[in-house]
Design a protein around this nucleic acid. Structure first.
Lengths: 336, 336
DNA sequence: GTGAAAGCGCTAACAA
DNA sequence: TTGTTAGCGCTTTCAC
């Protein structure tokens, strides 16, 4: 099965070095030689053995991507974007799922399953700031989407606070004053939930609207079911409200479903906005306003930063943080 | 950076063969020797170099998965299932996206990007029966989800015809007689669209309901937008109908949205059923009845078959076909 | 039960 | 411009 450089070299009547040069587009080769070699490659159906090349080069051209679950739309769309970005850099992507479970995330960081990738893009969910030390790994690592301050790795993340403030301000601009926030995590300080909550509060403060803790609903998982549950709780509690800010789109869509069942009209009775810019928000009924965190830019930046880290020979540049721009997308769920 | 077998061997005072034996769980090693070696491995933080091992073994422990797009929920959930199944076999998964575009699919089959995977699980969309010859590749290949008869590769697919028949029969059981079918592909003979249409017709025949071509609507892409568009067309055409069978869930959900906008009640006026068993169907309003094609079983089978093909040394077993079982999931959209 | 040594296919000094 | 050759780190016969 194995057609090697030697076979090609023999057939073409040159040395393996020459074949290698042709394969790797080395500059100084006589056109006739190149043609001969290419013909031989074609005839034999030669394909370079990547393992051998990797062994020699110390690089594989494969990067890892670790996300909680591909069946969550956000991460599926993120993976999509990362794969496209990697393609532009001639890299392929190996995907691992952590389930968002802290223990699995930690295990993955030192697992040998990813050990032959050149680097890792990691979207942690279960790990917290206390685990920052565990991110000090010996291979290139870029954190995506979460912000663990003081960690030893590069971060590529979004303007959570500003974007959440913009979303809330948008609702306030509609004349809403009783804005519920779905998806808070009690006690969290630095995760997306905390940052989005902070943005929400800043917007309220700015508008001089008092903060009402009854309007803030926790949701550990940010799945659709959690949004539905939070809305049930809110309705049951009898807390008056005229708008909902879901800390992600899925929560918001879960809330929308329950609102509709309860006979509340969207946006007339309750305006709803989500966060993430999921494709699905374009097609829901009503279409869902959301904050698009610039997923493609995020992915492209993550890959680029990782490539830089891979290229840099153990140069200990301090970890950097990158922020992508966001866009407020206004749709039916917040139409005037 | 590189801690090698030699380093470990030196520290442990043994030969590299012994270290290799320990790493690979070779049977006959004196416990004291093993302990010494393990201690050395631990102290040095030794990790086997996968490239070297692959070069030696001719296998990498990586399989490829090629799907149209991860941002389509069906393929995201499929990828999820494949990754889990691969994990059980100690394999990691490298994912490529083809966009469902025939040319890209064909290019991928001979691309060197996947050339260091041990095998490929391929979910084609753009390629047709005419391209079957192109599937005769020199590496282990398993086709997933599409059925290209007479092709030279193993297939793992679902009972499209039977499942579509069951879905349609379910609607008929509700007393519906004017059942629209969404997602047909004109001229197709062997793809999912053709098979599901066949199941639909068989169910009608069985029930003695005449087939009305006006009720069959084409949709090239099976996205939500296509389902919405098909429903708009159907309504505009003024064709009476009391049920819809979407050839996938996304089409059905797109149709649901338009029906709701048009003020038709589901399921009272129009019963709707989809196909794929997407997670999302549990949370839509109304929840969507669907056919669950046994995704986990499909994925597990695909990985198992691929593993068998990889293990088999160029033994030319004839290509086989595997079918997974399906389940009819009854939800609000077809409740009596 | 353990060691010595060959070689998997490739790239890159170094030579010519 | 092209050829020779030494490894990259590992597994695996074959001795001992």
């Amino acid at each position: 099965m194995a057609v090697t450089l030697y076979d090609v070299a023999t057939l073409a009547g040159v040395s393996i070095k020459t074949v290698s040069n042709v394969v790797n587009d080395y500059a100084h080769i006589r056109p006739t030689t190149r043609a001969k070699v290419l013909a031989a490659i074609d005839e034999l159906g030669y394909k370079p053995n990547i393992s051998a090349r990797s062994l020699r080069l110390g690089r594989t051209g494969v990067i890892g991507l670790a996300v909680p679950e591909l069946s969550l739309s956000y991460f599926a769309e993120l993976a999509d974007a990362v794969i496209r970005a990697a393609e532009r850099h001639n890299l392929v992507v190996l995907i691992e799922q952590t389930g968002g479970i802290r223990e699995r995330e930690i295990a993955m960081l030192s697992s040998s399953r990813l050990h032959f990738t050149d680097g890792l893009i990691f979207s942690p969910l279960g790990m917290g700031s206390d685990d920052a030390a565990l991110l000090d790994v010996s291979y290139p690592l870029v954190l995506l989407g979460e912000r663990i301050f003081g960690g030893p790795a590069d971060h590529v993340t979004m303007r959570n606070v500003e974007a959440a403030r913009a979303a809330t301000t948008h609702l306030i601009g509609l004349g809403r004053r009783r804005i519920a926030a779905f998806g808070a995590h009690a006690g969290e300080v630095l995760g997306s939930a905390a940052l989005r909550l902070q943005g929400y509060r800043e917007a309220l403060d700015e508008a001089g609207i008092p903060f009402d803790p009854d309007l803030v609903r926790e949701a550990g998982q940010w799945h659709r079911l959690d949004g539905a549950r939070a809305m049930h709780d809110l309705l049951d509690a009898g807390v008056p409200f005229d708008a909902v800010f879901g800390f992600n789109d899925t929560l918001a869509l879960g809330a929308v479903r329950v609102l509709q069942e309860a006979g509340r009209s969207i946006p007339a009775d309750v305006a709803v906005i989500g966060f993430d810019g999921l494709d699905e928000t374009k097609y829901s009924l009503p279409t869902l306003s959301t904050v698009d965190p610039g997923r493609d830019e995020l992915a492209e930046t993550a890959v680029r930063v990782l490539v830089e880290r891979i290229a840099e020979r153990d140069g200990q540049l301090p970890p950097r943080e990158y922020l992508s721009d966001f866009t407020l997308v206004e749709r039916e769920s917040t139409a005037l």
